[in-house]
């Protein structure tokens, strides 16, 4: 496919006897945000380093913008922006001097570089601290400076490793907005994270890593269907006689499971149906003399998918 920017086939990394990344396949398209999710040590960072040619592959291949990171790392690195986990800058230099160093490494002509630096800093709202030493920057500002570096580089692909870890909610929100900005500029973004609800809000597609393998891959809704089962889940809280029986009697309902720590005593049920049955549920409970206290549509959340998947994986092991 012409608009595929990264394609990995059977990508493998072995440290001694430990298979850190085990024959993974995935592809990333131009202009999409792709999330690599998984617990720490699942192989996310190793995969990223292999894509950049910063660590050697033990097997398989990866193609980045038509280049092989093993053989042509310079070509890859010229076109790909990388924001490492907890990015560091030279503290004794100003933001401008740090970016200028990067610009020189990229062989950007000097006059061009100054303008690009100013524009990039503007785009991450750091224009006013351009000439301040990085030592005074907060963590959120450093991450934004890292994004500015990618913007200045005019990268076609941005690889962000745990971009939001250690940030306060406001900084996280701002950073995610900037990541969306990259997408709007036509940049393919690959980001790794274990902060799921944040990732869910920006990612077009995600891959769930587990012990060096991609366990699941697709859109959040697809994953939810795969792990939580297809259907339309709703939450019902009601009191009255035999609520569960009433719910089960509704057409289209596939399962009724007590929700919450108290089980059936708690008066809350998770109902999965093949369509939206909220109206019928409300009607039935009221007509059978029950009192409906809550009726909610349950959006599949990545957190739930993630937790459920690893619970099942642990049970299977």
């Amino acid at each position: 496919m012409a608009d595929t920017v990264i394609e990995a086939r059977g990508l493998t990394k072995v440290y001694g006897t430990h298979r850190a990344v085990d024959a993974i396949d995935f592809s990333i398209r131009r202009g999409e945000i792709f999330g690599l999710l998984g617990p720490n040590g699942a192989g996310k960072t190793t995969t990223i380093l292999m894509m950049l040619g910063l660590t050697e592959t033990s097997g398989g291949s990866v193609d980045v913008l038509g280049f092989d990171p093993v053989r042509q790392p310079l070509e890859v690195k010229r076109r790909v922006g990388y924001l490492p986990d907890a990015v560091g800058f030279y503290d004794h230099l100003t933001a401008r001097e740090n970016l200028r160093y990067t610009a020189r490494l990229l062989a950007i002509p000097r006059r061009d570089a100054e303008k690009r630096i100013a524009d990039a800093m503007e785009s991450v709202q750091l224009a006013d601290v351009l000439d301040r030493r990085v030592a005074t920057f907060s963590r959120g500002m450093r991450q934004r400076l890292g994004i500015a570096e990618i913007v200045m580089k005019k990268a076609e692909v941005a690889i962000l490793d745990e971009p939001t870890s250690g940030l306060d909610p406001h900084s996280t929100f701002e950073l995610l907005e900037m990541i969306r900005g990259l997408k709007r500029a036509g940049v393919a973004v690959l980001l790794s994270s274990h902060l799921l609800d944040r990732v869910q809000s920006v990612c077009d597609r995600v891959a769930l890593f587990n012990e060096g393998r991609i366990a699941l891959m697709g859109t959040v809704v697809e994953l939810a269907n795969q792990v939580l089962g297809a259907g339309h889940p709703i939450l019902v809280e009601a009191t009255g006689a035999d609520i569960a029986g009433t719910l089960r009697g509704i057409e289209g309902v596939q399962s009724v499971v007590p929700e919450g720590p108290q089980g059936a005593e708690g008066g809350a049920w998770r109902v999965v149906a093949d369509r939206d049955v909220r109206a019928t549920v409300a009607h039935r409970i009221v007509t059978t003399g029950g009192a409906l206290t809550r009726l909610a549509d349950l959006q599949p959340s990545l957190e739930e998918v993630y937790t459920r998947y690893f619970e099942e994986a642990r049970r299977a092991a």
Partner: peptide, 11 residues
């Protein structure tokens, strides 16, 4: 200073 991976990700 965690600058190594950032610098080495340049060409």
């Amino acid at each position: 200073r965690r600058t190594l991976s950032r610098v080495l990700s340049q060409p």
